[in-house]
Structures are given as C-alpha cells and as structure tokens.
C-alpha cells in the first residue's frame, strides 16, 4: 500500500498567542484533489506551508509522501510543489530566465513539459516578470510548479484576484498536470466555486479548526433542498432522516437534507405537504447549510 500523499494528525501551529492551525487532521490519497475551504485567516495557508516544510508544527505529526517535512524538507520539495497566492518571482528576470533558474534548482525539471505548459498558457518568454500582469505571473508560477512533475501539488489560492478566464485556464492547467501524472492536489481557496469544479473532497477550516469534511461528489449527489407548502402551516418538531437544515416561513418549509434514495418529495408529502419542490444545491449552499447548524466544537463528516 502506497503512503498517503498527505497526512496530518492533530497538527497545531501557533504564531505567538494566535493558534493558526488547531489540532487539524487531514488525509489526502494519491491521485485525489482535496479542496481546503475557509475564510481569510482560517489556517489554509499555514496548513500548506506546514505540509511543504516551510513552517514547522508545534504539535502533531505530518507525513507527506511518507516523508517528515521537518527533517526531510529538501527531499520533500523535490516531489512537492507549492503554488502560492502571492507571487515570489524575481521581478528583474525574464520569463525564460526564471524558467531556466527554476530548472537549474530542480533535479526533476521537465523541459518539454515546461515548454508545453508555457505554450498552452501563451507565456511570452522575453518579457520581464515586473512587466507581467498578476494573471500572467500566476501562469508563470503554475508553469514553474507543474514542470517538475510534482507528486503533490499544494495550491494556495493561486487564482484569487484573477479574472474568470484566467482562473479557468490555471485550473485547467492544474487538472491536466495532476491527471497526467496521477499526483495529488491540495487546493486551498475561499472561492468555493473553483473548489467545486476540481476537488474530490472538501474540508472547511474555520479559525484553524476543521469544521466540515466530505466528498464533493457525494455531497452534490445526495444533498437536496426541498421547498414544501403546508396548508395548515409547517409542522413543528418534525422528524426527517438526513435533515441538515430546516427553515419555516409561514406555510412554507425549506429543508436541506440528504436524499440518497431520491424520495425526499414523498417523505415530505407524508408529513402533510401539499406541494413539494426538490432541487440540487451548489457546494457553497451545502456548506452554508451545514455550517449554520453545526456546533463549533463538532466536525461534520459526510
């Protein structure tokens, strides 16, 4: 059995009195994409930096591709790439120079792949980094990150602030790189739509803690929102299997619930609903429903 691409066990990291990551457990299988969702300051960037060995955990254990980032950082970084939100590219270099520099620093550099990625992203190699737009810099960073054929790619909001077209291009690049090589991706972002598009699993972080963890496919396949109309008003304290959230507005009851058997309609009608309308939810809506009802101390596993 091959080692997990990423394994966090009760990992905690503090910055002074602030706990940025608090007892976090994560597990990423090779070949999968984990979406790490959370507000700014929720611990996403810190988690990725811990996984990359740039930061060291105060407590807990981290294994990345079977390696300890604290002691095997150099080896780990030959197999793991991190694509960060803020560009750390040297502004005085040209695109070609920084690609050459990246190639000189990395034993796994694949020049063919780099050329291919640059062509697909339409990068002008003679331009200096300082003259590039933020989106183009993100593309350069992506080219640098994927040209080493990483077994684990850590993406720290690489598309934040980019226009939708560029975001799509970058995400497309990520997906292709990962799918070609069978590598794993941890994609941290507060843009749930992007996560929804590419992730296999999703973890929601809040204040350094894991608040929610689920398979995206399972969530989207089973979670439904139903709007039911009751002639005599919505019932109080009703029982409904798989219910996540319920809100009453006069005669209308809006329920978010798991519906693996696709029988939510009939179950609500058996409770006395005269009209029932069932619809799928976006990942963002599902997360909001869960987070509204989950006590902070608990982690929701779906």
């Amino acid at each position: 059995m091959s080692a997990a691409a990423l394994q966090f066990e009760r990992v905690t990291r503090r910055f002074g009195s602030k706990t940025a990551v608090d007892g976090l457990d994560l597990h990423v299988e090779p070949g999968s994409i984990l979406g790490l969702v959370g507000r700014n300051g929720s611990g996403k960037t810190t988690s990725l930096a811990l996984a990359h060995g740039i930061l060291h955990a105060d407590e807990g254990a981290i294994r990345v591709l079977g390696l300890d980032p604290r002691t095997d950082g150099l080896t780990l970084r030959t197999r793991v790439s991190l694509l960060a939100e803020e560009s750390s590219l040297y502004p005085w270099m040209t695109v070609q120079e920084i690609l050459d520099f990246g190639a000189a620093l990395h034993e796994n550099w694949d020049a063919e792949l780099a050329t291919d990625v640059c062509d697909r992203l339409k990068l002008e190699r003679r331009q200096r980094i300082r003259h590039l737009s933020r989106g183009t810099r993100a593309k350069v960073s992506l080219a640098l990150a994927v040209s080493v054929r990483p077994q684990l790619l850590l993406l720290d909001d690489p598309t934040a602030g980019l226009d939708p077209l560029v975001r799509r291009e970058v995400l497309q690049g990520v997906l292709e790189a990962v799918s070609d090589e069978g590598g794993a991706v941890v994609y941290a972002s507060h843009l749930v739509h992007d996560i929804e598009r590419v992730a296999d699993d999703v973890v929601f972080l809040d204040d350094g803690k894991k608040r929610f963890e689920a398979s995206v496919e399972h969530l989207k396949g089973t979670m439904r929102r139903a709007r039911a109309v009751f002639e005599n008003g919505a019932p109080d304290g009703f029982q409904l299997d798989g219910k996540v959230d319920a809100q009453t507005d006069g005669r209308v009851l809006t329920v978010v619930a798991e519906d693996p058997a696709q029988d939510l309609d009939s179950r609500l009608r058996s409770l006395g609903a005269s009209e029932v309308e069932v619809e799928p939810l976006s990942l963002e809506e599902i997360l909001i429903a869960y987070l509204r009802t989950q006590p902070e101390a608990e982690v929701a596993h779906v």
Partner: peptide, 12 residues
C-alpha cells in the same frame, strides 16, 4: 522584495 520564498519553496 518578497522573493525569499522562491528559493525556500524549492529543493535548495
């Protein structure tokens, strides 16, 4: 310059 991470993020 904010470019220190470039080398830190690589196997250097």
């Amino acid at each position: 310059d904010g470019t220190e991470r470039f080398l830190l993020d690589r196997p250097v």
